[in-house]
Write a protein that binds this DNA or RNA. Structure first.
Length: 288
DNA sequence: GTACAGGCAGTAT
DNA sequence: ATACTGCCTGTA
């Protein structure tokens, strides 16, 4: 019973994992913005139906990574006692596969702020620069394209509450528009090569690059270390690290930590990160 | 007022 | 290499 349902998935738990920002609860359903699509999760009692508008048959499998062989993945991660416990405790939690452009813009906005603020910035961006869509009598806005953002006025971006991130947002939009950054190519590259490309962009450092690699470019070995993960490691994995860990990281410490985490958790370290992150937030009583 | 929040680049040692 | 600093903005 327990192992049989370990490969189940719970879309609502997954969208509340804190790694995707443009979701909202309305009329007993959840609505998310996925590039040009609205994704709707309806249903109750843990039995959910996922639809997308415009309609797409493959989008559910795509965004919830139902193509991943989680039995194999989880079997590898069970070697770690804490992760083994969390896999059962948070059954149904998956990683999500986000739309790369939206993902990169989102995590650039995420630097040095909190989730309510990130959501505000992204909803503002969508409302101002996205296309209006209607569903169930509700109003939604698609996520704006890099082209649109590259042409946007600085003052309009500032009005979205982006603050000093505008410079980075512009740099990201530019590199996409000029083709200097190409997600298809990055997906085919190795983790390290793709990361090197991403971090060339102004405003994209280690952490943001790892988030984009894991959440949108299928690099499951990526192990983003934000303050929450750092705290989880300090608390539960101090033994993994020679020098003492603190939850403030210099760039060199960041590399050291992700490398060791990857060594310890293996090629699916990103899944371990997802469960650790969810666990920390859950324990902190987060409900944003 | 002021500390702080899911990093980053710039500058000085 | 490593440490220190400022940064938009909103909230507690």
């Amino acid at each position: 019973m327990q192992s049989a349902s370990l490969d189940s998935y719970d879309p609502v738990r997954t969208i509340n994992s804190g790694q995707v920002f443009l979701w909202q609860r309305q009329l007993d359903s959840w609505y998310g913005i996925y590039g040009q699509h609205i994704v709707k999760i309806s249903g109750t009692r843990g039995i959910h139906k996922v639809n997308s508008y415009p309609k797409s048959d493959s989008i559910q499998s795509r965004i919830f990574r139902l193509d991943d062989d989680v039995r194999t993945i989880f079997a590898e991660l069970e070697g770690d006692p804490l992760i083994k416990r969390l896999l059962t405790k948070y059954q149904g939690l998956r990683l999500m596969r986000q739309e790369p452009e939206q993902c990169l813009f989102s995590f650039v906005c995420a630097s040095n702020t909190n989730i309510p603020m990130i959501r505000r910035m992204l909803f503002n961006l969508a409302r101002r620069f996205g296309s209006r869509m209607a569903l169930d009598g509700l109003e939604f806005y698609s996520f704006p394209s890099a082209d649109t953002i590259s042409k946007a006025r600085i003052s309009d971006l500032l009005a979205c509450g982006l603050g000093y991130r505008v410079k980075a947002i512009k740099a990201v939009a530019e590199s996409i528009v000029t083709g200097a950054l190409d997600f298809r190519t990055l997906t085919k590259m190795s983790y390290h090569d793709a990361k090197r490309q991403l971090t060339q962009i102004y405003g994209v450092g280690n952490k943001i690059a790892d988030c984009v690699l894991l959440f949108s470019l299928d690099k499951l070995e990526a192990f983003p270390v934000d303050v929450w993960i750092a705290r989880a490691l300090v608390k539960n994995y101090q033994w993994l690290f020679e020098s003492k860990l603190s939850d403030k990281l210099t760039p060199h410490q960041y590399d050291d930590i992700t490398d060791r985490a990857r060594q310890h958790f293996g090629r699916y370290a990103g899944y371990a990160q997802q469960y650790l992150y969810y666990h920390m937030r859950h324990q902190a009583g987060a409900n944003w």
